[in-house]
């Protein structure tokens, strides 16, 4: 396979091109600007659309339009920009429009800083816009996964006619690693049942208004059914040194990379630490985490770069049978492997 040393942000754009994405609409924001920059360099080479929108609000609405016209379409942003996209995302989800959004999380709240954080977790995973809806969320932790999971994101978006997020942090976006470039997709799904092409047969309606209360409730129930199917079919996790683990750490994105290093150190010290890494955050690996409670573990430690947003979901999954501890860093700080090992020793007396 051809391979290339590339930044995570860049790899995601390659993934989009390979997945047959026809348009990128976005507004610059550090640390996601490189996605827009590399899209601006690459997309025109393929006669595909790159447009720097006037705002994230405009960008997500352009995504809505392109998706309504059946295109695979991408936008990228970070914290403040994602906040602005939420109304449009609610519309996309409500109108069952497939689209992909990459969020390279930065420090918050407010303007915060441009260091890596994972504090968009709630606003992304919980469907941060108005109304009842969910988005599928994939959480890559390497440049390779930035490419692969972006491709998967397009596939899942079309499969479920739903927005899909690729959610990671500044470190994964900025970091360069070797990416083995996959084959481009050869066939795109048929959307002629609902997409608008400006032709006689495609005079469809893209809409989210249901004036009748029963109709809207019915539509909400259909969405709930869809999310239940996604929950059942699409959970993805990585397990690392879980076989003999006595303590399990849970983390995604950058924290999972640090956890891998921490496990290396811990094992040298004779501490049996393992890791469960959610690759999908919605669907959340509820069963996989619930099952941990039956293993007779010494402890579960959630490591995140946010204020407990992830550990809340972990504990919800554990439903009181065990309670996960939390180790977190914020403000642009990334936990270190040593720091985690010390925390493990301190918490579990190992």
């Amino acid at each position: 396979m051809p391979r290339k040393l590339m930044k995570g942000n860049h790899a995601a754009v390659y993934g989009a091109i390979l997945a047959g994405c026809k348009a990128y609409y976005g507004y610059p924001i550090t640390p996601a600007s490189e996605i827009a920059e590399s899209a601006s360099a690459l997309f025109p080479k393929f006669g595909r659309t790159f447009l720097q929108a006037e705002s994230e609000v405009a960008a997500i609405n352009m995504v809505y339009g392109a998706a309504g016209c059946g295109q695979r379409v991408l936008t990228g942003s970070s914290g403040p920009g994602i906040s602005l996209k939420q109304e449009g995302l609610s519309y996309c989800a409500a109108s069952a429009l497939p689209c992909v959004v990459i969020d390279i999380m930065r420090g918050g709240p407010g303007l915060g800083n441009i260091g890596p954080e994972q504090s968009d977790y709630n606003q992304v995973i919980k469907g941060g816009g108005h109304g009842n809806y969910k988005v599928i969320v994939l959480a890559p932790n390497s440049a390779q996964e930035m490419c692969d999971l972006t491709m998967l994101a397009f596939e899942l978006a079309d499969k479920y006619r739903n927005p899909v997020f690729v959610l990671t942090d500044g470190v994964i976006g900025q970091m360069m690693e070797v990416v083995e470039l996959p084959e481009p997709v050869t066939e795109l799904p048929d959307k002629s049942e609902w997409a608008i092409y400006g032709t006689a047969d495609s005079r469809h309606l893209i809409n989210s208004i249901y004036l009748d209360h029963d109709d809207l409730e019915q539509w909400n129930r259909e969405l709930m059914k869809k999310y239940a199917i996604i929950q059942k079919n699409e959970v993805r996790v990585e397990e690392y040194r879980m076989d003999d683990a006595e303590i399990v750490a849970i983390g995604y994105g950058s924290s999972s990379r640090v956890l891998r290093s921490a496990i290396g150190i811990a094992r040298e010290r004779g501490i049996k630490l393992g890791m469960l890494r959610p690759i999908t955050l919605f669907p959340f690996p509820v069963d996989e985490i619930a099952e941990l409670a039956d293993r007779g573990l010494k402890g579960i430690l959630t490591v995140e770069m946010s204020d407990g947003q992830l550990v809340d979901d972990v504990n919800l999954a554990l439903s009181g049978k065990m309670i996960s501890d939390l180790h977190n860093r914020m403000g642009g700080n990334v936990p270190t492997a040593l720091e985690i090992c010390e925390k493990v020793s301190e918490l579990y007396g190992v």
Binding site: A58, H204, I206
Partner: peptide, 16 residues
């Protein structure tokens, strides 16, 4: 073909 869109955003949607 018809798209109903968020308040104020018709020109952005029309663009794409």
């Amino acid at each position: 073909g018809n798209l109903q869109v968020p308040h104020g955003r018709a020109p952005a949607v029309a663009t794409s």
